[in-house]
Each structure stands twice: as C-alpha cells, then as structure tokens.
C-alpha cells in the first residue's frame, strides 16, 4: 500500500448543538480510491469537507502529508494555523463540487489556468498549454473558449475536474460529483473519474453511484449517523454486508 496521504484521527464536528461527525478514524493511502456511501445526513460530505478545512472540526485531527490541516491542538485547545499554510495545503488537494462551482465570468480554459497562474505563478503560455492538455484529457479540447453557462452540466463538471487537476494535487476530493446531473450526463463524468483512478490518482469520492463504487473503488466506507459503520472492499460491502444498517441501506439503494 502506498504511504498515507490523509490521516484522520478522532474527527468530530458539531454544527451548534447538532453533532454531525461523532468520531472518525481513517487513513487514505497513495493511489487508493476510497468511496464513501450512506444515507443523507450521515455526515459524508462534512467528512470530505473537513479534509480541506472547508469545515472546521470541533475535535480531532486531520493530517495531510503528515501536517495538520487548518488548526492544531495546543494545551487542550484548538488553535488556528496561519492561512498561508492552509492555502498551500489546499493547493495540493483538488476538490470537485456537486454544483461544479465554475467561475462564470471566465471561459473553460481560463477557469482551468486561473489557479496555476495566480497561485503557482506559472507563466501564462505554459499554463495555457497545460490547460488545453487537461481539457483534451477530459474530452473538452474544443470547448476551451466557451463560457460555463453555454456548457451542459456534464461538460461543466468535466471542466471542474480539469481545473482541480491543473494544480497537480496529491489527492482529489469528490463531493457527490454527479448528483446534480441529468442521468444521461452522469456517464461521461464517471468515465473521466475512472480514467483518473486508473492513472493512479488518490481519490476520496462521496457518491450515490453504487456502480462506480463497485467497479472503481478500492475501499468502500458506509457511513451513518456520523460514524463509519462498516468498511471493506467493494466485494465485501456489496456482497456480504455484515452490519444490519449497511444491509438495510443497500437493500433500499440497490434494486
């Protein structure tokens, strides 16, 4: 197994009085594709968003490449780390959102090259070359000059993936990437994600797409009520789920 890229210890998150994550321990290794499934409200998205500190954990630690993300335990209290450190860590993680979140005032290419130019100070010509290559890789080389509102949902999501890839991340985080897509557009996005997995990208994917979980996942996590209820290989989870709640969930979801 590859080295640990993301290590999560005793992660808890509350929103006010509501405890959404009740204690998560998880290690993500290099090259692994970890798929997180579970009912809505189980905390899957929150878990993902804690990894790049879009949500602030109430307790526990998140380590990325050995460094704590966003905050640090000092004498029993959580102390924020400098923003610059966090920015640098986030630059090495890619995130793909359910609603794509493309920048509407920029073309597809401009979306992709924005961070490399602004954050990594890449020269524009080099960035454009990189951007075009990535867009071609996700099948959208001819849409480089298009604005997002002229692209279909599936196309927008693929641009979003290219945009995240442009920063050459160590891990890609997918937050229900196909949930907002029309069914006929889901396949093109899953295909891109599968290609990515085959190329060895470390991925954490929160999804309802069980087919993807089965085919592409190395490890499947079933979450419910803020905890990881069961985890194992896709064969184990889908073939012989041990926990009653896992079985209940799967029976509802797979027909």
């Amino acid at each position: 197994m590859g080295e640990p890229i993301v290590v999560i210890e005793g992660l808890k998150k509350s929103f006010g009085k509501v405890e959404v994550l009740r204690g998560i321990d998880l290690t993500i290794h290099k090259g692994e594709v970890v798929v997180v499934i579970g009912p809505s409200g189980s905390g899957k998205s929150t878990l993902l968003r804690c990894i790049n500190f879009l949500e602030k954990p109430t307790a526990g630690r998140v380590l990325f490449r050995g460094e704590e993300v966003g905050q640090r335990q000092v004498a029993g209290r959580l102390v924020p780390l400098p923003e610059k450190v966090l920015d640098a860590q986030r630059a090495r993680m890619g995130m793909v959102f359910q609603r794509f979140n493309l920048f509407p005032h920029m073309t597809a290419l401009e979306n992709v090259i924005e961070a490399p130019i602004q954050v990594r100070k890449m020269p524009r010509a080099e960035a454009e070359e990189l951007g075009l290559r990535l867009l071609r890789r996700v099948g959208l080389g001819d849409k480089a000059g298009q604005y997002p509102n002229f692209l279909s949902g599936g196309q927008q999501q693929r641009v979003a993936i290219a945009r995240a890839l442009a920063m050459e991340p160590d891990v890609m985080l997918f937050d229900e990437p196909t949930s907002a897509l029309d069914p006929e557009l889901v396949g093109e996005v899953l295909q891109v994600m599968q290609d990515l997995a085959n190329e060895g990208m470390t991925m954490v994917v929160v999804t309802h797409e069980m087919g993807f979980a089965r085919e592409v996942g190395d490890r499947v996590l079933f979450m419910d009520g803020g905890l990881i209820v069961e985890e194992g290989s896709p064969e184990q989870i889908f073939g012989e789920p041990r926990h009653p709640r896992t079985r209940e969930f799967l029976s509802k979801v797979l027909h």
Binding site: N52, L54, E83, K84, D87, A88, R90, A91, R92, M93, G94, M95, F97, N101, L102, F103, E114, A115, Q118, V119, A160, R163, A164, M167
Partner: peptide, 10 residues
C-alpha cells in the same frame, strides 16, 4: 469555496 480549495488566498 471553489477558489479557496484551489489554494487561492481570501
């Protein structure tokens, strides 16, 4: 969120 997750500062 998208901008920050790409590593852009506030």
């Amino acid at each position: 969120e998208a901008a920050r997750s790409l590593g852009m500062s506030y």
